[in-house]
Write a protein that binds this DNA or RNA. Structure first.
Length: 583
RNA sequence: GCGCCCGUAGCUCAGUCGGAUAGAGCGCAAGAUUCCUAAUCUUGAGGUCACAGGUUCGAAUCCUGUCGGGCGCGCCA
């Protein structure tokens, strides 16, 4: 349950009630009323801006209106006291039993705590990774993979019906290059000496086994043959092998897609012609000549009539080309068809997770979605900025051309899957990130993965110790459920419960904002509070979890510890990281 | 030249679709361990939220401009 939502509803009914009693006008816009945790703990448990938001429409000064509202709020169940502060905030302080109930709720729900019905089962398509099937995944893909996957999990937890989708670009020029590169390796496998991989082809050694496999399957039949004889076969052969590798890499990151959509299939079934026909009917296509980009004119620029989409009618800067000079579709044209296809499969809400190099593509894609769905489809694009790897205090420079990039599987081999997943969420997706391989393995406060794991391990440790000393029954779910939680009276214990109680709201807000990194930050905060409480037990033995000779108090505190562990696990599940029992 | 993203403490970064005295970690200074994991914690110093205007009860947040960094800029994806 989102507790802030609960009290917001209470305020709305108070507003209605006051309106029906003609104390304030009826029919005011209450949409901007919020109930939030105040930034400062000293301001109570919750604060509402209701009086300030409504004051104008009510024709009252904010603080006067606040006085009227707070009088009624005082009578609501669980409200301990209210206070009018600053320009007209109403601060609420809640009674301790309310917080004890929240802990009980956590214990009853287990890791399902935080599940929300916000999404009302609406479908959302999250498309991520979508790397060309031309080589293994590397570090840049890892960030998008994690961001997309965790965003999908987050939306699921918030009550959406999520489809995880990978778009396989198996039709464009990139896979032709793959095929030519593989052909070289094929000749090599048959004994030819290849001195140097020509510029423009993929030099990576990962294609050597592909060449060998080709040689084994097809023998020498293509030696000396024209490209048109072998291109199609090798292209699909190599692309399939590459996708197998991609799937392996994703699996090792714990990522499993629901749908792999093939660009080639889409093109072959005429989807591009379909979407263009539709656009033609809407008069959104014409033949024209684009202006060269100002300030920077490409060397080989020449004005040329092209088939263009009126993207500028939908918020883009210029109209965009749909056909290449060789008559084939641009990537954009097939991507339009692809997004219409998604929409027709029932996804009004689409999220794409892209790398930084696609930033300039966002506007036209949004324009395209707006056009082909008649404004009904909604596209959000999360751009993941670059990841700079660091090791031994030095930057690891990567170059795809030189073949010196660090692969995803290298990275996982170096630090492990869970660390990769968590670390990728320690920055907003649109901020650049430095990934320090040494720090990611460090067991210190510096390393948020460790820090959260440590908090959970400490929880488990206390529970194990209690079981050893008092018997397994002490920590059984039924024993903890029967605990007298009213014995939890210390402010730091209640503070901890309050942060746990904020978890459902965190899930909803992060899901609505499409910001998975907030989960990692929340877990860090929860861990901080728990570590702090733990250390209070060092200063004051009365605050330790296990108090010999006081079973009731101990069980209440074990319930608290179990609650912390539960919420941490609930969060780690969203991130896709396994909790550890001990370190 | 144009578009998008970013600019917050010495460093790395949060900051809840406009809220109260702008936060955290690292680093720095000083402390806590016969006791549930000190792999942790506590306290302190540290700020013109890049800069200049504007919008309003209120701006780090929204708008305009300037400066600085990143990404991209017809027939690559």
């Amino acid at each position: 349950m989102n507790i802030y939502q609960h009290f917001r509803d209470e305020i709305l009914s108070i507003v209605d009630e006051l309106a029906s009693q003609n104390v304030i006008p009826a029919g005011m816009d209450t949409g901007r009323i919020t109930v939030e945790p105040p930034r400062e703990a000293g301001h109570g448990d919750m604060a509402t801006n209701a009086a300030m938001v409504l004051s104008k429409a009510a024709g009252m000064k904010p603080r006067d209106l606040a006085a009227v509202l707070s009088e009624r709020l005082n009578t609501i169940q669980w409200v301990h006291e209210t206070e009018i502060a600053g320009p007209g905030f109403i601060n609420l302080r809640l009674e301790s039993p309310y917080w004890h109930q929240r802990l009980e709720e956590i214990l009853q729900n287990g890791t399902a705590f935080g599940d929300s019905t916000l999404g009302r089962g609406e479908t959302v398509n999250v498309e991520y990774v979508s790397a060309n099937p031309t080589g293994p995944l590397h570090v840049a893909h890892a960030r998008g993979a994690v961001v997309g996957d965790v965003l999908a999990s987050l939306l699921e937890k918030a009550g959406y019906a999520v489809t995880r989708e990978y778009y396989v670009n198996d039709a464009g020029a990139q896979v032709d290059i793959l095929a030519r590169s593989a052909y070289l390796r094929y000749r090599e496998a048959l004994g030819e000496k290849i001195k140097e991989i020509p510029k423009g082809l993929y030099p990576g050694e990962y294609l050597i086994p592909v060449g060998e496999a080709l040689a084994e399957k097809y023998g020498d039949q293509w030696l000396g043959a024209d490209e048109e004889a072998w291109l199609a076969d090798i292209r699909s052969f190599a692309a399939i092998l590459m996708m197998d590798e991609v799937r392996e890499d994703l699996k090792s990151l714990g990522i499993d897609f629901d749908v792999f959509s093939s660009e080639k299939t889409l093109v072959e079934k005429g989807a591009v012609e379909g979407v263009l026909e539709q656009l033609e009917k809407m008069d959104l296509i014409y033949t024209g000549v684009l202006e060269p980009p100002k300030g920077k004119i490409p060397d080989d620029w020449e004005p040329r009539p092209q088939t263009l989409f009126r993207a500028s009618q939908f918020g883009d800067e210029v109209d965009r080309a749909l056909k290449k000079s060789d008559g084939t579709w641009t990537y954009f044209a097939t991507d339009m068809a692809y997004h219409l296809d998604k929409f027709q499969r029932g996804f009004k809400s689409m999220i794409n997770v892209w790398g930084a190099d696609h930033g300039g593509y966002v506007k036209r894609m949004k324009a395209a979605v707006g056009a082909v769905t008649g404004g009904e489809g909604e596209l959000d694009v999360k751009i993941c900025q670059m990841v700079h790897l660091k090791k031994g205090g030095e930057a690891l420079r990567m170059s795809k051309r030189a073949g010196t990039f660090v692969t995803l599987s290298d990275l996982i081999g170096e630090v492990g899957r869970d660390v990769v997943r968590f670390m990728m969420l320690t920055r907003k997706n649109d901020s650049q990130m430095e990934f320090d391989l040494d720090k990611a393995l460090e067991q210190s406060r510096d390393n948020p993965v460790f820090y959260v794991h440590y908090a959970h391990a400490r929880c488990r440790s206390v529970l194990r110790n209690a079981a050893t000393e008092w018997g397994d029954d002490t920590i059984s779910p039924s024993a903890l459920a029967a605990a007298d939680l009213s014995l939890l009276t210390d402010p730091s214990e209640l503070d901890l419960i309050k942060v746990m109680a904020a978890w459902p709201r965190m899930v909803e807000n992060a899901a609505e904002a499409h910001e998975p990194h907030r989960i990692a930050y929340y877990l860090n905060e929860l861990a901080t509070l728990f570590h702090a409480l733990w250390n209070k037990g060092n200063d004051d033995a009365r605050l330790r979890f296990i108090i010999t000779g006081e079973p009731a108090l101990t069980i209440a505190r074990l319930a608290l510890v179990q609650g912390v562990a539960t919420v941490i696990v609930s969060g780690l599940q969203v991130i896709g990281v396994s909790p550890v029992e001990e370190l």
